[in-house]
């Protein structure tokens, strides 16, 4: 997918979450990883890309199409994409199955039985068939995140946006979820994710963008950025996080 971002700015009060982001990525990029320190602007950029927030200034084009500005068209934009959050955000009053079926029926206009079939298919692929009728509280963090991923995936999103999908999980569950995401990458799914998993970013992403202070500090292919970082900030950051 091609991504062009120009002068993207978003302030929350005095916090400059996006402070004039410029970025241009070519068509070859299928999986894009956003890395950098917490509070550097990764989540904000993801939300702007996904149409969950509106920028104060600037524009985003994905595959030549500009992310819309009015609520009505933004909703259409959001429906085409899939979004996964750090804290799972499943609906606690619905079973795992209903969590996936509800958006298919109510947002995408599927028939209930078709939606049910599709949900079972995705869940089976994610190894979660035994847990379809459970409510989120009955599931572990990793299981919840897999169901949330199934929900974000079920309608074949044009673009999958993952906001630190494994940050709230313990190491074993992290691995389970990362395996699934890796599998989606292999399957050709277009993904933009923010992550602190440097190994994953390096192994699976076609391009990596380092965000700090609401700006793009450095961007490039995974090998370039991890093996030959140019800026002192990225060098220092990688030095710290790769140390252990």
């Amino acid at each position: 997918m091609s991504i062009e971002i120009q002068g993207l700015t978003k302030h929350y009060g005095a916090t400059r979450a996006a402070d004039g982001i410029d970025l241009a990525l070519g068509d070859a990029v299928k999986v894009l990883a956003l890395i950098g320190p917490s509070g550097g602007g990764k989540s904000t950029l993801l939300r702007l890309l996904g149409g969950l927030e509106r920028p104060d200034a600037g524009s985003i084009r994905i595959d030549g199409k500009e992310v819309p500005h009015d609520e009505e068209t933004l909703r259409v934009w959001r429906r085409r994409n899939g979004f996964l959050f750090q804290s799972f955000n499943l609906f606690p009053h619905l079973t795992a199955l209903e969590n996936i079926v509800l958006p298919l029926v109510e947002v995408h206009g599927w028939k209930r039985d078709e939606a049910g079939e599709r949900a079972r298919e995705v869940v089976a692929r994610f190894g979660m068939s035994a847990h379809l009728e459970k409510h989120p509280v009955q599931l572990s963090g990793g299981q919840q995140q897999r169901i949330a991923l199934a929900r974000a995936m079920a309608h074949d999103p044009a673009l999958l946006l993952l906001d630190e999908p494994t940050s709230a999980l313990d190491p074993e569950m992290k691995a389970e979820v990362l395996d699934l995401i890796e599998e989606l990458c292999q399957g050709g799914q277009r993904i933009i994710l923010s992550t602190h998993e440097m190994g994953f970013a390096r192994g699976s992403a076609d391009a990596v963008v380092f965000l700090g202070g609401g700006k793009v500090v450095e961007s490039g292919s995974a090998t370039d950025l991890f093996d030959h970082p140019q800026s002192a900030i990225v060098k220092a950051f990688l030095g710290k996080v790769m140390k252990w």
Partner: peptide, 24 residues
Amino acid sequence: SQWLSARAIGFTGAQTYRFVVIPQ
């Protein structure tokens, strides 16, 4: 987080109330 999730799914305001907020 529930409102955000509903927004990300593409629910309208009315759908968010009907399917997510009011049942809870």
